[in-house]
């Protein structure tokens, strides 16, 4: 089943956005405005609920006209695209795993989810969990082909591994040329401390460096 790749699951939802000419601003614009201010860091709904590697929300205004002789055609609704790459081990394949994920999201961030999806036609709200799950799955589209660079590690494992990598690099750099007994003693203390360290929170930005970031194309 192409939604699944190893223990990672590719979720694709297309939810129709309410098409109400009386609404001002229109519902698609309200979603855009809300998403523009939704935190992407540790306060993100996807960070509060575990198991999301990467996710995006996109207001799809229409299909694209690529120019004659192709035909110009248009959608009747705009759609909210929810695309997520999530942990879903093979033993949970099928609806159980997906239900668990969506329910986790609904319980962790009901206000944010409702604020976004309440602009979608027929959205029942997170309060009625069964209806919520039914709605989301009704909007799901099967992936045709799913590629994952790493498909056998959970979000937690990855966050832990990144922590380990950083700590190990520090340890190696600060223990060059130590005599074996001291090295071993230090390593054992180090590994104990590292293993006991809490797993870092997801979506924490990199330590501040004096270089700016921003989006810009050539």
């Amino acid at each position: 089943m192409p939604n699944q790749n190893g223990s990672v699951y590719g979720l694709t939802l297309l939810c129709p956005i309410i098409n109400d000419h009386r609404a001002s601003p229109s519902h698609d614009l309200q979603i855009r405005a809300y998403l523009a201010t939704l935190p992407t860091g540790p306060d993100s709904p996807f960070a509060i609920a575990p198991h999301t590697h990467l996710a995006r929300l996109v207001v799809m205004d229409d299909v694209v006209f690529v120019g004659a002789p192709a035909r110009e055609e248009h959608l009747k609704s705009k759609y909210l695209v929810f695309e997520a790459n999530i942990d879903c081990p093979p033993h949970a394949i099928g609806t159980t795993g997906l239900d668990t994920y969506l329910a986790g999201l609904a319980m962790a961030a009901p206000q944010q989810l409702d604020a976004i999806w309440s602009h979608c036609t027929g959205y029942p709200g997170t309060a009625n969990l069964q209806a919520f799950l039914h709605y989301m799955k009704a909007c799901q589209i099967e992936t045709t082909f799913f590629f994952a660079a790493t498909n056998d590690k959970s979000v937690t494992q990855t966050l832990k591994a990144l922590q380990t990598q950083r700590a190990v690099a520090d340890f190696i750099a600060t223990h060059q040329g130590k005599d074996p007994a001291e090295l071993q003693r230090d390593f054992l203390a180090f590994s104990q401390k590292l293993i006991a360290a809490p797993t870092p929170k997801p979506a924490v930005p990199a330590p501040q460096r004096p270089m700016q970031t921003g989006g810009r194309n050539e």
Binding site: P210, M211, Q212, G214, R216, E218
Partner: peptide, 17 residues
């Protein structure tokens, strides 16, 4: 564009900080 901007304007992109 990068030529129009000149190297000083591109210092962020180049890491000239």
């Amino acid at each position: 564009v990068e030529f129009q901007e000149g190297m000083k304007s591109r210092s962020g992109i180049l890491g000239d900080s």
